[in-house]
Design a protein around this nucleic acid. Structure first.
Lengths: 147, 147
DNA sequence: CTACAAGTTCAAGTGAACTTGAAGTCAAGG
DNA sequence: CCTTGACTTCAAGTTCACTTGAACTTGTAG
């Protein structure tokens, strides 16, 4: 059992953030004495999971969903982990693909000679891509709007 | 010259966002009659630039800085563009590298047999990586904190 | 002349992910 | 006994990138 300071130190996540996570149902603790939180050791696994997922780009709500699908007490099984891994890998790949399109856009714009960001096929999101919806879908792999 | 509705339609960026960008100094317009904005055509280039940069992950402040360095009237020269391109490409590469580390973490965790996110070398950000600072630096390529 | 769409300003609201501050409790050390 | 430090709750504040709403003016069509 670890108190909040310990967990904060070990996970590198601020105590205020841990309280916030608990409030949001991402982690849980038992209370002792005057109401101090005492976290079971595996909370560190959960926090690692949260931080990992955040870096991948999931919101806390999405992370909470994923955590709800995982067994609360035991470590995730191969099946648990593989389902998740597939999903997240896909998400990562998507984002990487987008970044590569963007990078391609940059180097191509340097190479194509126009340098105007105006006539260049990579830019001009308005006249060419606006009908696809908000934002420059051209670079975005035609994904749903960001909100 | 385009009015705000036209620009919004062509760029796919909401009129309210365009007003906001103007307020923040990212774009500018001339006023006509009762104060209606009239944007010079090249504003579409600037907006394309903004949207592009946002997708790469720059904040509006950073974008404003970059725009300030670009010539306000003429199209960017080869030198302008190449400096920028270098910088942004680096940024993209960095982020791609991080995502690849994360993906590696996922598949390795499936493969390594531990499946616990606890003993696995990829996780356990607390005991192993917390001394590096907040967040699971282990996956992050040891970058400065996010704030 | 009257509608109505499209523009204007300004203040306030939104949502995500936290952080900060105030006020209080509690255990251990000097 | 008193201070110190670590914890508690709860409300409110912060940043980013916008959006929304209220109140108002203009331009164009019928």
């Amino acid at each position: 059992m670890l108190n909040i300071g310990e967990v904060a130190r070990r996970s590198g996540v601020a105590a205020s953030a841990l309280r916030f996570y608990e409030e949001r149902g991402l982690i849980s603790s038992e209370r002792e004495g005057a109401g101090q939180r005492h976290f079971p050791r595996p909370v560190l696994r959960r926090i690692a999971f949260i931080v990992f997922a955040q870096r991948i780009g999931l919101s806390l709500d999405e992370i909470a969903d994923e955590l709800r699908k995982l067994p609360p007490d035991r470590a995730p099984t191969g099946r648990d982990w593989s389902r998740l891994s597939k999903k997240w890998t896909a998400r990562i790949d998507e984002r990487i693909a987008e970044l590569e399109r963007l990078r391609e856009g940059l180097t191509q714009c340097i190479g194509c000679g126009c340098l105007s960001l105006d006539r260049c096929q990579l830019s001009n999101p308005g006249d060419r891509a606006a009908r696809l919806g908000p934002g420059a879908r051209y670079w975005m792999g035609d994904r749903p709007p960001r909100r």
